[in-house]
Design a protein around this nucleic acid. Structure first.
Length: 211
DNA sequence: AGAAGTCCCCATTTTACGTCA
DNA sequence: TGTGACGTAAAATGGGGACTT
């Protein structure tokens, strides 16, 4: 290997070296000059495939064999394709990461909502049992009063009225459901609903006024 | 229809050259 | 400072498919 100690990127060096190689081995030059590369790159930017006539003209202009020009364009297309593949991969990877992140957020939200729903079902069941017990006990008392001749009580009066007292700090579950039934229910944030339902305030729960 | 020529793509090899111990 | 091993990019090769004549 010749080491001339000069800038290997300079045209002078390359030309000189190629000349040496040509004279020594009587072969065509192996490395193209910077000027040749520049011309080839410029044309490649506008057309990645060369027409035969243009190829011959370009080879003549650059002092190369037409076959060399054709090979250069083939290799250049391969290199460009490889780079493009890398760019596409990076774009797809970024999109995937973004979607994956969103999926994780939605998944966690879904788990949280499922848990909250389960708790609500448990509370409803519990309260319904309590209501049922109280109603039975009230009915038996009224039967006793009626037997003592205090008058008949109409069904309407005896039926339990579901009255909601004013409750500023919490939203009733029916309100939540009404809200969810609106057209824009998708806009409701789960956190908002949970906050409005005052799940965390055990001293003043909406289900305390259920009966 | 099929043989010959040409071009291109693709995988692979060869070569040039920089870096580092 | 010289040198050989190694890695990498570029140039070249060869096989095979598609197309034209």
């Amino acid at each position: 290997m010749l080491d001339l100690g000069s800038d290997p990127d300079s045209d002078c060096f390359t030309t000189f070296f190629n000349t040496l190689s040509n004279n020594k081995d009587n072969k065509i030059q192996r490395r193209f000059t910077n000027q040749q590369i520049k011309s080839l790159e410029t044309i490649f930017q506008s057309e990645s495939k060369l027409e035969p006539r243009k190829k011959l003209q370009l080879a003549k202009d650059l002092g190369l064999q037409p076959r060399q020009v054709a090979i250069w364009f083939q290799n250049k297309r391969a290199r460009w394709k490889s780079k493009q593949l890398e760019r596409d991969y990076n774009i797809l990877r970024a999109n995937y990461d973004s979607l994956s992140s969103k999926f994780d957020i939605l998944n966690r939200e879904n788990q949280s909502l499922t848990l909250q729903l389960q708790k609500l079902h448990e509370v409803i069941d519990k309260k319904e049992k309590i209501c049922s017990t109280r109603e039975n006990s009230k009915d038996s008392t009224e039967e006793k009063v009626s037997e003592k001749g205090l008058g008949n009580v109409s069904d309407a009066d005896s039926s339990m009225k579901l009255e909601y007292p004013e409750h500023n700090s919490s939203m009733l579950v029916v309100d939540i459901l009404d809200k969810a039934n609106e057209d824009n229910w998708e806009d409701l944030e789960s956190d908002q609903l949970l906050n409005e339902a005052a799940i965390g305030d055990t001293s003043n729960q909406w289900w305390d006024v259920w009966c």
